[in-house]
Nucleic acid binder design. Structure first.
Lengths: 233, 233
DNA sequence: TGTATACGCATTGTATACAATGACGGATGT
DNA sequence: ACATCCGTCATTGTATACAATGCGTATACA
């Protein structure tokens, strides 16, 4: 414990640990609905599936539990969190509150160069019924929103928003395959950045609000049309 | 895995697990500054201190890491997160955004009975230089704000806010002993609830904003007066 | 038939042994 | 004096063995 200022030598190396590997793989499988909402999971089963022992699996599960993708019940196992209408409403409401605030702050602080870099992340689409493209689209979309939030300069806010969006990806996966919204969503990000670059803050906030609520309603509508097992609790 | 609907049988029993025990004890010691910001911790050391093996300690540490109280550096150990001015600003800003929104929603939804129960949590003070009373005050204060947020009906928001306030308790601990603000803070909660009960939503939001910013500035002022080791990164 | 009770079993919770990592310091060469 | 290399050691990362829990079921009993 003489190594006092090794504190600075933080996460530099990118060599992945088993726990991290399992975390990423499991999260991916949860988001892509490979593990379906309500399904039961066991540490042993996951360990075999992802090729490790129970210990890294356990760490990954606890993390995903706190992010709201899993639920652990003591001495029983883990259950994939169900998707409820209430959770969808709550999540989008929280997201709106966080992103609205972040956007206002970003408008005050961001430089032209930063906005330019953000614009580079804006062009993102998907193709209907192409499962692979869904995943990539969602990743880019998350990137865009996280980077936008980062321009607020508030790193706590960014961390919270990142976790939230991560937990929300499932919603989109559920919705994307039930209706083709690619055209409808085309250019949303560009529109937002353009307003920011033009310095029209209020319009940008209004635009963001419109987009987020539209996004929510698309999912709700898709879910209402197709019949998906959604215990509304 | 035939036990499909045992999913419902969630956390009922209150029997504590070692990991939980360590988590609570360690969090308490972090909040009360028994472990000082910047200090180095090892799993083995913590295991001996809290009377368990490394495994539960590990789980507690990962949890506290995600809550922003610890930082883990691989193959090296854990470090108590330092308190920076930026983090104080960021935290209060995020808290203001979350609580403002929650308050607005609560004003729309809360029944008189709920507001009455909230009022019961409002009367809370501390006595200067009484370390014990600080802890209890902070717990009651957290309770009040979390319950207030709960009236918004948004459980995701509540979860995020709870973690955030938990991580912020240290700030108050740093500040409380550097100045006697008991008188200044007396009745703040009552004032807020009264405005809510009177249906004066806008005034309540303004009041909350005033209180939160005052709280932040008290801490900043106290920190500026006493000299506390605050690496501003 | 209904009800209380005890047992089995799947699963998590915990401890411990061992492997991997990488920072520090001394040895070595120039 | 100074840089470089290499071994050492503290610490985390991982696997495995064992304990604890509590649900489901069979069983005993009225």
């Amino acid at each position: 414990m003489t190594d006092v200022n090794a504190e600075a030598t933080a996460a530099r190396g990118t060599r992945r640990t088993m726990a991290e590997e399992v975390y990423l793989a499991l999260k991916r499988d949860l988001i892509t609905l490979r593990h379906k909402p309500g399904a039961a999971l066991t540490e042993q089963g996951l360990a075999e599936r992802y090729g490790s022992s129970r210990v890294p699996v356990r760490e990954a599960c606890r993390r995903l539990q706190q992010e709201g993708l899993l639920k652990a019940v003591p001495y029983k196992g883990y259950f994939v969190d169900r998707v409820s209408l209430k959770d969808i409403y709550d999540s989008f409401e929280l997201r709106l509150a966080l992103e609205s605030h972040a956007l206002s702050r970003a408008a005050e602080r961001a430089t032209d160069a930063e906005l330019g870099r953000l614009a580079g992340l804006a062009g993102t689409e998907y193709t209907f019924h192409d499962w692979e493209s869904y995943t990539e689209f969602l990743e880019r979309n998350e990137d865009f929103h996280v980077q936008l939030a980062a321009l607020s300069g508030n790193s706590r806010l960014v961390a919270v928003l990142r976790d939230l969006i991560g937990a929300m990806q499932r919603f989109f996966m559920l919705g994307l395959d039930l209706g083709d919204f690619a055209a409808e969503m085309r250019g949303e990000h560009e529109e937002l950045v353009a307003l920011l670059q033009a310095g029209q803050v209020d319009a940008a906030v209004a635009c963001l609000r419109r987009q987020i609520l539209a996004s929510r309603d698309r999912i709700l509508k898709a879910l209402a049309s197709g019949r998906i097992d959604l215990p509304l609790e």
